[in-house]
């Protein structure tokens, strides 16, 4: 992996985070490919199959997995169109959960770049802290990880896939109204 590519991708992710924090959502949308899948599965707690806390009755069916699969419930499961509509909702003057708007600060770290399926694609892992303030005293902190696929197209990187893992069983935040 060339160092310049890693550097370019890190800079891309930081710029993306800044656009979100500056509420430049249309510009952010331009960083996504038209076929993007933007997905945050939902978490559920399961015992490990070898746990001494559980005597499994039907071990053939037992699954340890904590996060929902494709086609199951999710917190976000978005296309470019649905993301664009979420953004245009903010411009209606009646998106009450975001008016007055949240103030956010995205901290992006642990960036790891791997080669993707084709030369023009990279698999990019990163962690995030999304800090949000709103109203008089509200403060929310969302911490998690992302798995992206970045595609080099039209002379720049774009995000063609983003899976967001927010490892909270019961969300303590009243909503998810910001982008990750």
């Amino acid at each position: 992996m060339k160092r310049e590519i890693v550097h370019d991708i890190e800079q891309f992710l930081y710029r993306e985070a800044r656009l979100l924090d500056e509420c430049k959502f249309q510009e952010w949308l331009n960083l996504l490919t038209d076929d993007i899948r933007y997905w945050m599965p939902v978490m559920g707690r399961r015992y490990r199959a070898f746990s001494k806390g559980i005597t499994i009755l039907d071990s053939d069916r037992y699954e340890e997995r904590e996060f929902s699969n494709e086609g199951e419930l999710a917190i976000l499961d978005e296309t470019k169109d649905s993301l664009a509509r979420r953004i245009s909702r903010l411009d209606t003057g009646m998106a009450w959960a975001e008016d007055p708007p949240s103030r956010t600060c995205h901290i992006i770290s642990n960036v790891e770049v791997r080669e993707g399926d084709s030369e023009s694609e990279m698999i990019v892992y990163s962690n995030f802290i999304l800090y949000r303030t709103r109203g008089e005293l509200e403060q929310d902190i969302y911490v998690g990880s992302r798995q992206d696929i970045l595609r080099y197209t039209g002379g720049d990187w774009k995000i063609s896939y983003r899976k967001i893992i927010l490892p909270q069983n019961v969300l303590s935040q009243k909503n998810i109204s910001n982008f990750f």
Binding site: R45, Y47, G53, I54, T55, I56, Y62
Partner: peptide, 14 residues
């Protein structure tokens, strides 16, 4: 039980 769901003949207190 500390899980949200699963399958068990028995559960044992931790």
């Amino acid at each position: 039980c500390r899980a949200d769901s699963g399958n068990a003949a028995a559960l044992t207190c931790a």
